[in-house]
Design a protein around this nucleic acid. Structure first.
Lengths: 236, 236
DNA sequence: TGAAGTCAGAGGTCAGACCACTAAGTTACG
DNA sequence: CGTAACTTAGTGGTCTGACCTCTGACTTCA
């Protein structure tokens, strides 16, 4: 029945993964950014370098580590990474992926905005204002995209649901290339107005308005996508 | 700028992954279920067994393979697996995970039902009816859960959005253990009635009704969750 | 002072050995 | 005759130790 906990540890790699995960959690709190080298980890855990390598590779794929050739093993926090890869595998064609991406965001993100309107605390609202100001003042496309992405990320955060946040982080990241084109073509003004409306709704705790504003925002983004141009971009 | 395609192949593992992925896609069409052994793959690709192992492990984590000790390498199609693992890592505590899971489903699945009402074709509706009948006639809890899960899966499928489908597959799988408890405690009758309402709405192409019925269904599931019992179940 | 060269140490790949597990075929017993 | 126990071939899992390649920092020399 219960295939968890006590039955597994037969795999060495699994055990090392768990020890490493604990080590990572600890280091994240202290701000240490790097793990010891593979050779010393192997010695420390009393296993071969082979096993350590498999374990670190696995944790890298899960978004907990980033292995840099010739440099070392960095501790990161990108848990949405596996979802990115899965969606890229699921829909290899970029244009189609972006279309479905937008449809999915249309279903999810308005709900997240509604939740945020209900749950956001003062600090989170301040953060949203700060990011919105950055978008207004952004000098070039690159920083505009950054602020745009950060805004959506902050809303997912304010929704208080970590699953939402992970999913939306991934969807946002996968859509970055398309936003770059959109902003280059039609500018950031529409986005600023939409964000303004969403921000006000959240400030007022008006869930329905937030949901509506966000839906409007994403629908507009879908219309403004330049699919033909995207098809030219890249096969991946 | 564009860090895709041509810059990467410096990694042997990456190359083998791509070749394997192609091989897998081919085999999926023909129904072949197993890959050759690691040793013959290594010979076939002209690399060491080490590289083949890293590649297969990677693809296993992505949900394309399942490696069985002493048996072989099976081709599977479980692209939602990485999301499962990410969410388990993200929220290790099962009770909390289930709570947030339900909240997330509440945001996503009604939209999927609405999309399904708009997009489902005849065959997909027939499939839904078939599955619903299975739930009605299910003799025990296990088969009831199976039919229940299959129903939600079929709706995600009928929504026509593959991203929805992947996400919902994962959320459904993670919630299985909780459904088992719920059905054991209060029976399958409520679920049958809810599914009936959803099914009718989709048959009629009534997106609003489908959305409402699904929302009602998930809200009920959330209320019926026995969180105290879940806390006793398992630390993972 | 700055650019080129050098070097230590990190991850990447290799080869070959042996261990642990699974399934299937074989044998021997009831 | 059927079934349970044993044997075995082949799979993935782990170990060892060697060598390659890359990165960053140090050293050297114009």
């Amino acid at each position: 029945m219960n295939a968890s906990a006590l039955s597994r540890p037969h795999s060495l790699v699994q055990q090392v993964c768990e020890q490493l995960a604990a080590l990572i959690r600890g280091s994240q709190r202290e701000g240490k950014g790097w793990l010891p080298g593979e050779r010393s980890l192997a010695e420390q855990f009393g296993v071969s370098r082979t096993v350590v390598r498999e374990a670190t590779k696995r944790l890298e794929q899960q978004g907990l580590l980033e292995i840099q050739h010739g440099n070392g093993i960095k501790i990161v926090d990108r848990l949405h990474r596996p979802l990115n890869e899965a969606l890229t595998l699921l829909i290899p064609d970029m244009a189609e992926r972006l279309a479905q991406l937008n449809e999915a965001r249309l279903a999810i993100e308005p709900q997240a905005a509604a939740l945020a309107a209900r749950n956001a605390n003062r600090e989170q609202i301040r953060q949203l204002r700060r990011i919105h100001a950055q978008l207004c003042e952004s000098p070039d496309s690159r920083s505009a995209i950054e602020a745009d992405t950060a805004f959506h990320h902050a809303i997912a955060d304010a929704s208080g649901n970590r699953i939402h946040r992970l999913i939306l982080d991934s969807l946002a990241e996968l859509g970055t290339s398309s936003r770059l084109l959109t902003i280059g073509r039609i500018g950031k003004q529409p986005a600023i107005e939409h964000h303004q409306a969403i921000l006000e709704a959240i400030e007022n705790g008006d869930a329905q308005a937030a949901e509506r504003a966000m839906r409007h925002h994403i629908e507009a983004a879908g219309r403004d996508m330049d699919l033909p141009a995207l098809k030219e971009l890249s096969p991946l």
